[in-house]
Design a protein around this nucleic acid. Structure first.
Lengths: 239, 239
DNA sequence: CGGGTCCTTGACAGATTTCAAGACGTGTGG
DNA sequence: CCACACGTCTTGAAATCTGTCAAGGACCCG
C-alpha cells in the first residue's frame, strides 16, 4: 500500500458524490499542488484549535481522536487519501478533537479563504464536499452500530471491509494491505490491544484475513463481508 | 416533561448556532405551523426512503435507528424538540437508517422545495442548519468514545448529562425527567435491557439519579457530570 | 550492542450477556 | 368487579466475552 497516483485521489473521491466538469477538476488539481510530509504520530491539527487551514490527506492514514482524562485514546475516524480533515470546522468555531497521522503522510494545507472561494464559485465541488461530510456522518453511525452490537471479531472484520471499499472507491488498484498497528486498530474498535491481537490471530486462523510483512491482507473479500454481515449501503457509493 | 412552549423550540435550537434576525424568526414560526401527532413506536421516515419532506420534532422523543439482520435494534441518535430529522438527506439521495418515535410526538413535515428556498433566501438559517448537522456529527463522535471506552454506568450517566444540557439549550425550564424505557436506553447504549436495569438501579442507589413515576430524574447535575467525566465542549453550545 | 516498538502468550479478574422466572402496573373485555 | 394480556421492570445464576497484569520474543535502527 505505498506509491500510487496521488494527485487524483481528491478528485476521485469527490466524484463519488457529485458530477464534476473539467473546470472543477482543474481547480482541484491546482489546490493540491504543494504538500508536506509528516511522520507517524504527529498532529495535523490539535484539539481546541481554531484552524486557518483545511487539510487534505494525499497519502498515508490519519485519524480523528480524543484523549480521555486517564490517558486512553479513542479513534473516531480513519482518514485515507482524498479525505478532507476539517472541512467545515469554521462553522463550529473550534476543533472538539484532534487529527493525527498513524502512518507517514502527505498532507496539503489549504487556506480557509481559498476554500470559501471554492465553495462559492464551484457549486459542484461545494456539493461534493457536503456529500463527503454527510457520508462521514453515516460512517460514524455505522461504527456506533458496529461497536454497540457486534463482538470484537465481527467488528474487526467489518472495519476491514469498510476500508477495503473506501480504498477501492478512490481508485486504489493494488492489493489491499493495511499498515496499521494492532494498537491503532484496538483504539479504533474500542477494545484493548491484547484483545485486538487475539482477534486478529483468530481471523487469521480462520483464513478470513492474511498477514504479510505485519500488514493485514484480505484473501477473499466476499467471505469476509459475509462473516462481518457487511452491507455497503451506508458508504453511499455510486453503484 | 410534557407541555411547554413548543413553537419556539426550533428557533431556540437554531439560535445556538447562528445569530437570527426578526425576519428569520418569523419565517421559522411560519414553517412549523401545521403539525401532526404520532403515537410511540411509529416511523417518521423509513430506511431506504427517498424523502420529499423534511421532518422536525416539536414535542416528544424520536430516534435514528437501524435494525440488524438478527432483529436487534441499534439507536444512533436521540431527537428532541427542535431537532431536524433528515435535513440534508437530499444530498445523499436515500435514507441509510430509519427514524421513529419513542414517545408520543408532534412532528412537522416541511416540503423539500420550501427547504431549498429557505436555504437560499435565509443565509442565517442555512448556516444554523449546517451548524446543527455538524453538532450532530460531534455528538456521534462523543457517543463513540462513550461506548468504546466507558463502562455501562458512566455511559448511562454521560447520556443523561447530555440530554439534560440539550433540553436546557432549547429553553426547557421545568424539571428534567426522562420518559424513555430501559429497553430504549439499552438500545442507545449498546447494552442489554437486563444490564441497563442493573445500571439504573446502581446509579439510583448511589443517589446519582432519582426515579419518579418510572422516569429518571437528576437530583444533582454537577455530581452526575463529575461521575460521568462529562465535558460539554462537544455540544458546541454558546457559553 | 542497547533501546524502542510491536507482537505474542498465559492466567486471572471483571464486566456483560444469556436464560429463566416472576412481580408490577395498566388497559380491555367479559 | 374480576380475569387476562401485555409491556415493563426486577432478580438470580451461570456462561461468555473482554480486560488486566505480567512476561517474553521478534524486529528494527542508531
Amino acid at each position: 500500500m505505498t506509491a500510487f497516483p496521488m494527485q487524483n485521489m481528491v478528485t476521485r473521491k469527490l466524484e463519488n458524490g457529485a458530477r464534476l466538469d473539467q473546470r472543477d477538476r482543474e481547480r482541484l488539481a491546482e489546490l493540491v499542488r504543494g504538500w508536506r510530509a509528516l511522520p507517524p504520530r504527529s498532529d495535523i491539527i490539535s484539539h481546541g484549535d481554531d484552524p486557518e487551514f483545511v487539510h487534505v490527506i494525499l497519502e498515508g492514514i490519519a485519524c480523528r481522536y480524543k484523549i480521555l482524562p486517564d490517558g486512553r485514546r479513542s479513534i473516531m475516524a480513519l482518514l485515507i487519501p482524498g479525505d478532507f480533515c476539517d472541512m467545515h470546522v469554521a462553522i463550529l468555531g473550534r476543533m472538539d478533537h484532534g487529527i493525527g497521522t498513524l502512518t507517514p503522510c502527505r498532507v496539503v494545507d489549504i487556506p480557509r479563504s481559498e476554500i470559501e472561494e471554492l465553495l462559492t464559485d464551484y457549486p459542484n465541488i461545494a456539493r461534493a464536499m457536503w456529500w463527503a461530510t454527510l457520508v462521514d456522518e453515516a460512517v460514524l453511525r455505522e461504527w456506533l452500530v458496529n461497536m454497540g452490537k457486534r463482538r470484537a471479531d465481527r467488528q474487526m472484520a467489518h472495519l476491514l471491509c469498510e476500508l477495503y471499499l473506501r480504498y477501492a472507491s478512490i481508485g486504489w488498484n493494488g492489493d489491499f494491505s493495511l499498515p496499521m498497528t494492532q494498537e491503532q486498530l484496538s483504539d479504533t474498535l474500542g477494545i484493548t490491544a491484547v484483545h485486538a491481537q487475539r482477534v486478529v490471530a483468530g481471523l487469521r486462523q480462520d483464513g478470513l484475513i492474511g498477514i504479510e510483512e505485519r500488514q493485514i491482507t484480505i484473501p477473499d473479500i466476499a467471505r469476509l463481508m459475509e462473516f462481518a454481515e457487511f452491507d455497503p449501503d451506508y458508504l453511499h457509493l455510486p453503484s
